[in-house]
Write a protein that binds this DNA or RNA. Structure first.
Lengths: 219, 219
DNA sequence: TTGCGCCTCCGTAGAACTACTCAATTGCAC
DNA sequence: GTGCAATTGAGTAGTTCTACGGAGGCGCAA
């Protein structure tokens, strides 16, 4: 367990250009990223997509070193897209780009084995730095999120899958009875989950649970 | 009441450049806008701000023809910023820029007497076109929002102020009892408002009201 | 002045949720 | 196998919300 395998790709020149693929549903944001990075000779933008589906179709042809992936996209969001990558055997490095400094998002990004989480409010310098680091491997977040990293496994609510299902249903206004029907469990079980969710999240009534759900990115 | 006062600034050349001020909390988005507009000789970017407060401080010095204003900004959002403009006697034209195709936002933009509402997913061409139109006056929305315009006064829930206060409180998980205390009204009154809100929005239980509140931009 | 919308308040009945408690089953890790 | 977490289910009591019904005051506009 030495530091050897830190350099898996052997002959890496110091000035090798990074082949970057951008997936974001807003053309405006893509333009912004382009504008920022095109000055930098060490980064080359080799492709774009406006959603996860397009990304999957186009990435292999573009053969990027790193995929800059927005989380909130229509059709297929960033997380789902990465899951698809894995299923299809695509092993590109991924750096998430998101508007939200949401601990749960950061946690999921880490759990998925991606290489970083970057907020959209970063400066040009930090964006370039984070991209460079993500390409090397490991998991990197932009500075304002540093604190999310430490407690990423301990501090967070960490709802179980079932609890997340139930919470998502609660958040869109479903009644316990409906939820029970859809999940094929008894109303009492739904209540049990609900109560567990309340305990873990500190949320009180149904409305505040809805807020929690949206904070957790379950909608 | 002829059309005379439509041209208050008398000698307007056809190719006059538009002096544009950009207020958006994301440097990335500002960069994107810059990148898109800097090719166009008819638009000149004369200033930037990262929030409403900065915008107010800087706009007079920049003397723009049009302010491109993000809605979701920290400290002071776009709507509050415009209200401040008015209080301070600033009469610059305003074009909102937002991520959300939210009818209620469009309605508020219109009610505030601003000159348009542009989604952040517009193309470069449409962005330039909308800016040009907004500078001329009137109220303009980007194409995907056209349908919001017609029913902007009739179709929408149009909650009363009190109802909005109550809804906002519900959405963050407050109990009727708490709300009653804070608004100095009885619990029964809160219930009445709540029931009116349910009727107007179609929302059923508390959780779905929370969702409605967030859709309406009350949080 | 008459009407209308908004805000305020109330009663009753039932549905839904909250707050505690407990426990059987499954599967996974040590 | 023992322990632990996740999922499932239940009892009891109390609180909160929902769905009806009704009514008075106030301001504004036709």
């Amino acid at each position: 367990m030495t530091m050897k395998n830190q350099l898996e790709e052997p002959p890496m020149q110091p000035e090798k250009t990074i082949r970057l693929f951008i997936a974001d549903d807003h053309e405006l944001v893509r333009d912004g990223i382009r504008a920022r990075l095109e000055d930098d000779p060490s980064i080359e933008i080799v492709g774009e997509a406006a959603n996860g589906k397009q990304a999957i179709e186009r990435i292999n042809a573009a053969n990027p070193d790193l995929v800059l992936l927005d989380i909130n996209m229509p059709e297929m969001n960033g997380f789902e897209t990465v899951e698809q990558f894995r299923k299809l055997g695509m092993e590109q490095k991924v750096l998430f780009l998101s508007l939200y400094d949401n601990k749960e998002y950061v946690r999921r990004a880490k759990v998925l084995g991606t290489n970083g989480y970057m907020l959209k409010d970063v400066s040009q310098a930090e964006m370039i730095a984070t991209i460079s680091k993500a390409v090397q491997g490991g998991f990197h977040v932009t500075s304002s999120l540093d604190d999310c990293l430490d407690n990423t496994t301990s501090d967070l609510p960490m709802l179980t899958e079932r609890e997340q299902e139930v919470l998502a249903a609660i958040a869109i206004g479903k009644l316990n009875k409906q939820i029970a029907g859809e999940l094929n469990i008894s109303v009492r079980t739904v209540e049990s989950h609900r109560s567990a969710i309340r305990q873990k999240t500190g949320g009180g009534n149904a409305a505040s649970l809805a807020k929690v759900a949206s904070d957790l990115g379950l909608l």
